[in-house]
Design a protein around this nucleic acid. Structure first.
Lengths: 175, 175
DNA sequence: CTTTTTACAGAACATATTGTTCGGTAACGA
DNA sequence: TCGTTACCGAACAATATGTTCTGTAAAAAG
């Protein structure tokens, strides 16, 4: 990939992140993004068709790393669900520079939704649940939401607990 | 209140609801709203300063009824938390014409947030919780989210369960 | 029923955003 | 060194915004 493209892409992402910390997603204009990123109007549109596409691309890039189970410092036992969730927590904290500002912003829900979808898939593909008196669909939704909300709470408090502590809290709930 | 004002207000709300079922909140323009509602541009702005104000007003109006514990057909025991939650479920189902379309729309989150805030207050003011090994704040957030998400799930499935059944599901989770 | 008040429509307005197109420039990769 | 490609800047029409004005019709008050 051309260095200029990378540079431009990064500049736009950075500007977008900066603006997201200041105002809501739907109040941010393309004009403000290109002003902040200091790129030409036509350049922006050659990279992203719309503002929504930019959001999608940024989500994709951010969460790609979070849900990557490649070899990394804390790639312990990520063969089962609990291992993967724990692994995810480490990733979230590791990339906090990107995530904390975004998830706690006014438009954090947009990113949370993206996060929830992945989490739900994780549960759906790795869970082996006995029926506990509630519909499977209902339970699945509850578990993924619980995990996602816990992470959000954790991020908002600036990771004041260790991943293990948080994992323990969550386990206390879903027990 | 002037009849003309009521009529205009209702027309705008209706148009807004209709549009929300078709497209996302941030893709809806004031222009579309006034076209759909068939009111003059100046009229809209004499009622609401911005689109956000319209959203706020509509949330306020919708949820005012939901969290109203005035005498009504199912106003049984709403003196304790469980009674109030149950009462809320009845209200949600009763006003389904207003709520189901909105909560299941692409911008349902906006209304869910409003809903969650009230629910959280309800828990906060009525709960008498022993510490269960997790921070009170964490637990409070979990409970309100669980309830809100359950309601969302319920609405999305077009109230296929009775309020009692749903309440039972929720109790199974938070037990 | 008459008078006064008030909400509305419609138009005009300056300003801002959008998404596209073009030609020139400079950085890139081979 | 040379061809390729990303960029800038400007211009563009189309649309949205928020305000202000005048005349009209409907409401409330008397």
């Amino acid at each position: 990939m051309d260095r200029r493209q990378q540079k431009t892409r990064k500049a736009i992402f950075k500007a977008f992140r900066l603006l997201l910390e200041k105002k809501r997603y739907d109040h941010i204009t393309v004009q403000e993004i290109i002003d902040e990123a200091d790129v030409g109007r036509s350049t922006f549109y050659s990279h992203f068709e719309t503002k929504d596409m930019l959001l999608e691309a940024m989500c994709s890039e951010i969460f790609f790393h979070v849900f990557e189970y490649d070899p990394c410092p804390w790639s312990g036992r990520d063969y089962d669900l609990e291992g993967k969730l724990s692994h995810t927590l480490w990733h979230v904290r590791d990339s906090k520079n990107d995530l904390s500002g975004i998830l706690t912003s006014d438009s954090g829900e947009l990113f949370m939704n993206y996060f929830k979808k992945h989490i739900r898939n994780l549960f759906e593909n790795n869970i082996d649940l006995f029926d506990a008196g509630v519909p499977r669909d209902f339970l699945l939704n509850h578990l993924s939401c619980t995990f996602a909300e816990a992470v959000k709470w954790w991020v908002a408090r600036d990771f004041s607990e260790s991943p293990e502590e948080l994992a323990q809290y969550i386990m206390t709930l879903v027990k």
